[in-house]
Each structure stands twice: as structure tokens, then as C-alpha cells.
């Protein structure tokens, strides 16, 4: 059995990717407000997801105010689906073992 993707397995990153999987795009404030993380913590998680190619970051300006938007990439979506497939199979193995006991 393949190992779980440790980058996605981290709870905050998993939630960031899951939220982004449900929408076309979300900005920094939305993720901050929904997850309740600090700015530094959220930036750090986003940075890792971006480096892994799972999230696309788009920076722009609303007037003079900087605006950062995030989108899940096809690779990110695929990795997230694979992660849940693997987790489900682990859960199934666990429940089968319980039944045998």
C-alpha cells in the first residue's frame, strides 16, 4: 500500500485544499476567517502547497489594497482525491480487522 501524502496529511493544509476543492477561487481573508489560523501560519501552509504545485497563487491589487487569491491546481485536486482513497482503504482495513477480532 502506498504511503499517505504527508504534505496533505497535515490538518490545516488538508482543510485549505478541501475548501479550495469546493470553489473556483478563494482569497487570503476567506481562508484566514474560516480556518482561524494566524496570518503567518496560513502563509506558511499556503507556501508549501504552492511549492508542491497543489495551489496556484494570484496576486493583484484592489485599488491600492493588495489582494491574493488561491486556486487548487489539477495536481492538487488529484493528490487530494488520492489521499482520501488511501485513507478510506486504511479505514476499511481497520474495520475488517475489528470484525475478525
Amino acid at each position: 500500500m502506498a504511503e499517505l501524502d504527508r504534505l496533505i496529511h497535515e490538518p490545516a493544509r488538508l482543510r485549505i485544499l478541501t475548501i479550495l476543492a469546493g470553489v473556483e477561487a478563494a482569497d487570503f481573508n476567506f481562508l484566514l476567517n474560516t480556518l482561524g489560523l494566524t496570518k503567518g501560519n496560513l502563509s506558511s501552509h499556503i507556501d508549501r502547497l504552492e511549492k508542491a504545485g497543489y495551489v496556484k497563487v494570484e496576486k493583484s491589487f484592489n485599488g491600492r489594497v493588495p489582494h491574493t487569491e488561491f486556486q487548487i491546481t489539477p495536481e492538487g485536486r488529484e493528490a487530494l482525491e488520492e489521499y482520501w482513497r488511501q485513507l478510506d482503504s486504511i479505514r476499511n482495513l481497520g474495520s475488517k480487522a475489528e470484525e475478525k477480532e
Binding site: E10, P11, A12, N33, L35, G36
Partner: peptide, 25 residues
């Protein structure tokens, strides 16, 4: 929906925000 989303998202996400995030191996 926003209230539900926050509730569901924050379930099990009890992270100390002051902590540094360790590097993945």
C-alpha cells in the same frame, strides 16, 4: 452556511498558532 463551514472546518483543528511549523521529512 458560513457558520456550518467554520464549525466543520475547525473540528479537530486545534493548532497552537504560535508554534512554528516543522519541516516535513
Amino acid at each position: 452556511a458560513l457558520w456550518k463551514l467554520k464549525t466543520v472546518t475547525r473540528q479537530g483543528l486545534e493548532i497552537d498558532n504560535n508554534e512554528e511549523i516543522p519541516e516535513e521529512k
